[in-house]
């Protein structure tokens, strides 16, 4: 966010761009439901500035089930990986020695590339004394963009089945689907706390962690909060399926100075609605204002940090 955008929130008819990432640690806590509800609430509250929604859960993107976008544009994503010209290769082994990921091996009179281990750094190509290595695109997936309900700009990455590395697709999605000046970005993160989650969170202004009142929810919330601390990103918590039976979540948030911004009750009507592809604001329209209030609270936190 640029410094000139850091003004106190008064004129609530106008908002300035920032990036909010919705993550969770534990899977199935309601990240996408929350992120989609937040996007729809902002689009309704600020119809002149609907947000940009990025579905960064590229291994299993599912935000389209809530937001029904039309995806008009598509681009292939991959890494530049080495291709070895055996006619020029002297099997000196320099490429294998330099490779941090052991993605290239020199085995007697054969040099073998392991595309799934390669991180595309280009060191082998740069170092080959014979100029025997060229780089070729190894496709891993696609990025897509278009528009969804209420003028929401929508983009997502889709990792090809069998590809092990999600990060390059997420990185490309962030680079390709850029917000307009002042547009709020909502990033829907994958579950967990590994590299794809870190890549999604990286560069965000605020992190919303969705948890549930269970020991598993708390365990993973703790891990996700550590990632946020490491990346130095202000963080707030949403407790979904709240039934008042697990005060340990509150105790942890209090001890870690994590504000609980919203509690969504454990309720049959919500479960039924979500199962039919409805967001929280479709099921209970009063959440539109709650999400807007939460957004303003986040906005204020960021403006003053």
């Amino acid at each position: 966010m640029n410094p000139s955008a850091r003004q106190p929130v008064r004129a609530t008819t106008s908002i300035n761009g920032m990036i909010i990432t919705v993550a969770s640690g534990k899977g199935g806590t309601g990240k996408t439901m929350v992120a989609a509800s937040l996007a729809l609430s902002l689009a309704a509250a600020y119809p002149q500035q609907p947000p940009l929604y990025l579905d960064c859960d590229v291994e299993a993107p599912n935000a389209h089930l809530f937001l029904h976008p039309t995806l008009a544009e598509q681009q292939e994503v991959g890494l530049l990986i080495p291709a070895v010209d055996e006619a020029k290769c002297t099997h000196c082994g320099k490429c294998a020695e330099i490779c941090q990921y052991h993605a290239i091996a020199v085995l007697g009179k054969k040099t073998l590339v392991f595309p799934q281990l390669c991180h595309g750094c280009g060191s082998c190509t740069a170092l080959c004394p014979e100029g025997a290595i060229t780089e070729v695109l190894d496709r891993m997936g696609i990025v897509e963009r278009g528009s969804a309900a209420a003028g929401i700009a929508f983009a997502r990455g889709v990792l090809d089945v069998g590809e092990p590395m999600a990060v390059p697709v997420i990185r490309q999605l962030k680079k390709w689907a850029l917000p307009r000046p002042g547009q709020v970005v909502i990033r829907d993160a994958p579950p967990g706390t590994s590299c794809p989650v870190v890549e999604t969170i990286r560069g965000s202004d605020y992190l919303l962690l969705v948890t549930e009142p269970t020991p598993f929810g708390l365990h993973d919330l703790r891990l996700a909060a550590q990632v946020a601390k490491e990346l130095n990103i202000p963080t707030g918590v949403i407790v979904n399926r709240e039934n008042g039976t697990y005060p340990e979540i509150d105790a942890f948030c209090e001890a870690d100075h994590l504000p609980i911004l919203l509690r969504i009750p454990f309720e049959r009507a919500i479960a039924e609605g979500v199962a039919r592809g409805k967001t929280l604001v479709d099921i209970h329209p009063e959440y539109g204002d709650r999400f807007r209030q939460m957004f303003l609270q986040i906005y204020e936190t960021i403006s003053h940090s």
Binding site: H102, I104, A105, L112
Partner: peptide, 13 residues
Amino acid sequence: SGGAGSLAAQFAS
């Protein structure tokens, strides 16, 4: 962190 299999093959070779 990864590629132990290819590294071990390189070693055997």
